[in-house]
Write a protein that binds this DNA or RNA. Structure first.
Lengths: 219, 219
DNA sequence: TAGATTGTTAATCGATTAACAATC
DNA sequence: TAGATTGTTAATCGATTAACAATC
């Protein structure tokens, strides 16, 4: 890492995308790529690509470009994907179950260790080999198993209470699927997946596209 | 609507959030709110709130503030939430099923009409009263039922092919859960939910927070 | 009318793009 | 060495914040 200045979130949000494209290139057996070639592939300007990467260090080589495998590994390390994360899911409803079943996360170093719910009918159930446990026991479990991430798949009404408990028990990050903005201690990272917000902005863009089409048709 | 200039996506992304907070205020029986009060609640500056809202028209009143219910309705209309949208889900795996079961969307005017899959073992199944149909028949279905939105819950390898078919059949928007960037005609809106990207940026922030904590401890 | 608060213009800040010297 | 392409500084663009006149 090169500079110590805070890196903007806009840059961070682009890193997983860089990484995805680099993975594809690797699969295709591509060894090296210039910022220009990468630009026409990924759709960011070459300038932005170089600027982004230089926030973390000089990964390229003048006159050559970037080594695909090397850059992939660097970005993985920057994101912290060379580590393993232990996670618990709170809420064994549809979404919680879907995430528990999504074995991708396991492969990628994100291990779902347990699922918690208050519903007695769900407690004891096994989802993808992971037991649904009683929410009452979550603090002990998180402490004893050194859980890193809590995944909140509850309703919005219980989400803050769950977040408080998880933070108290020692998680370092929350992946929040409840449609609410959580308050957490500053050392806990929160990443929101607000599905309804996402759907609403889709609706907006659909209607704008429609309006434009209408307007174009008038001419 | 006041101006005709293109409104930046940053503004649009904030609208669903304004709307959520306004809904809560309404529930609490709050009639009016000033940009300053709203600011301390939602965390945007009062200036930004006024600036954002004025992209669409003057919804406030000098010396008074904004009418909560009125503003809620205005934002709903801007987003297009006064309309109904017919949707199909492609991919009846965990995620597809979770979304189909999430009746929230139905209540909010987003109606899941059908689910499609290529797996013969899933075809015929009923999920939340919605039948899983053969993917082969999707183009006819979308055309005949005038489906507005396609929800892509397939693997990344089939996602583009599915997108092509849905666009050809006439959807106006795609809600894409596959970890890939889709190419679509310009009049089709795409909203991505890249869950793994989201998890990766969570990992980044967790590690940065940890580093800062370490650094603080050194002092 | 006086006070409050918006709507809107101007100033600032930050992020993106362009340019080019450094260097492989 | 000559050509290519990065790393980095400077210029531009856009988004956020501040200020204040308009007005309820």
């Amino acid at each position: 890492m090169k500079k110590d200045a805070k890196i903007s979130n806009a840059v961070i949000k682009r890193l997983p995308r860089y990484r995805r494209y680099l993975k594809e290139l690797q699969k295709k057996g591509v060894d090296k790529i210039s910022s220009n070639e990468f630009s026409s592939l990924i759709g960011y300007t070459a300038s932005q690509i170089r600027q982004d990467l230089n926030n973390f260090g000089g990964f390229g080589q003048q006159g050559y470009g970037y080594n695909v495998e090397g850059l992939y590994n660097e970005i993985s390390a920057i994101l912290g994907l060379d580590k393993e994360y232990k996670m618990v899911i709170v809420g064994a409803g549809n979404l919680g179950q879907a995430i528990a079943n999504h074995t991708y996360y396991y492969k990628a170093g994100f291990v779902v260790c347990g699922i918690f719910d208050i519903n007695p009918r769900l407690i004891g159930l096994k989802i993808n080999d992971i037991e649904v446990m009683d929410y009452e026991t979550i603090v002990d479990y998180v402490e004893q198993n050194q859980i890193d991430i809590g995944i909140i798949c509850t309703t919005k009404d219980s989400a803050q209470e769950v977040a408080d408990k998880l933070c108290f028990a020692g998680v370092r990050g929350l992946w929040n699927f409840a449609p609410i903005d959580l308050e957490v201690p500053e050392y806990v990272a929160v990443e929101n997946v607000h599905l309804s917000d996402s759907l609403h902005s889709l609706a907006y863009h659909m209607n704008r596209n429609y309006e434009e089409k209408e307007k174009a048709a008038e001419k």
